[in-house]
Nucleic acid binder design. Structure first.
Lengths: 228, 228
DNA sequence: GCAAAAGTGTTCCAGATACACCCATGA
DNA sequence: TCATGGGTGTATCTGGAACACTTTTGC
């Protein structure tokens, strides 16, 4: 691909794909195959070509570099963009970030994958050193995920359609990176009005069966300010 | 200016310049002199030319369209960017937004101003219909200002170097768009540890003189999440 | 009966809210 | 003396945090 296919100032798209693996929050990374930052781990991303939207470029880079399609993922509504003269060693750059959530996703396997760059999910607590300012972007995305987790149904995209309260708590503990009190969590979760019982019961082992829950469809997305 | 000076996909910069006028929070707008949205009020903004950073383009558009220099303003540290296929009727666009705060700013008067487009400060409660998605951008910026007001010294940029508690309260009431209890405000403000007394006293009228305060220099910028 | 997850309430504390009067000054 | 903004304290409410035992099932 020659340079004149790309915008100037540099405009790129980067994907932050989260999923839960073994009750840990993980992020999809690739190992860069080109300079700059050759060999360094990075978010999947690429230049946004002239004739594409950032969303189309997102689909392209995920399929080609990781073998995952956005059709397997839940995208968080708005993209965010980062702008800083120091972001890219080649010069001034703006990147559009998409936060995506998945479940049971395995890198590779998409028929249009080429150019795969060793895509892997890393626990967010054990990230390697990242290229560019991707560490900042991951932190931003995780904070955004935290905020949305307490006001919307986004966590549903990380879980099966029906889940027990303890599965749900494990997900929140992974997102917030800390353990939560079972009774307080149940109280708060119910007061947030984000989930409802399905009426079904999970019988899955040598223990008392659990009520199953699911996220409600419509969610408000208001964020709080002080002095409200 | 011909089109090939500009990036593609379209990359623009927009300025949200706040100041207090008569104890109201106001935003700087211009009246568009060109299509699209000819005659509609809008944030000062322009394409980012190939050879400039968004910050340089910001300075350019403010000076040329409003006669104000960023040197008269306090910029909020990070730019934010918005991305949406529907933002611009001409196609896919990304805009970089800068939030800027000023005091006693009058549009016009800069020697390099040309192409002025009737720049005026509008009370945020009485905005006209805006071009593009600028209403969303203003809302975002104001919310950001609210959040930063309770954790940083940004409000200092809207006030004189030393101010009384009631001036400060007026500023917060303008930002939050609601009246606050005098005693509770004082308590909360002091607990936030953002201001300190100068030791000076304001004697400015037929009433008891007031202790003067100033914002501290260094501020933490942590934002809270639930489940912390 | 025992292992393993499900389920359940109360106390405490901190921070937010509501609320009304006296003070110091200049005119 | 009065008009104007400056300055102060308490009671209540609300939401978060800490904390331990009983229940139901499969083996």
């Amino acid at each position: 691909m020659s340079d004149e296919n790309f915008a100037f100032p540099i405009l790129t798209v980067d994907a932050v794909v989260f999923q839960l693996v073994n009750n840990k929050l993980t992020v999809l990374l690739i190992e860069r195959a080109f300079e700059p930052f050759l060999g360094r781990w990075a978010l999947p991303g690429e230049y946004i070509p002239k004739d594409k939207s950032s969303h189309q470029a997102l689909e392209h880079v995920l399929v080609h570099k990781t073998g995952i399609s956005t059709k397997q993922l839940e995208l968080i509504e708005q993209p965010y963009a980062f702008d800083s003269p120091e972001r890219d060693p080649r010069g001034y750059a703006v990147t559009v970030m998409y936060i995506s959530l998945g479940r049971n996703i395995t890198p590779g396997g998409h028929k249009d994958m080429d150019n795969a760059q060793n895509p892997q999910f890393f626990p967010i607590t054990e990230l390697p050193e990242l290229a560019y300012d991707h560490a900042n972007i991951v932190t931003f995305a995780r904070n955004r995920l935290k905020t949305l987790s307490t006001s919307t149904n986004v966590v549903g995209a990380l879980l099966p359609g029906a889940f027990t309260f303890l599965q749900l708590q494990d997900a929140y503990e992974a997102i917030f990176g800390k353990s939560l009190d079972k009774r307080n969590f149940r109280k708060k979760m119910l007061s947030l009005n984000l989930i409802e019982p399905t009426g079904d019961i999970a019988k899955d082992g040598a223990h008392r069966p659990a009520q199953l829950y699911t996220f409600r469809k419509v969610q408000s997305k208001n964020l709080d300010q002080s002095f409200d």
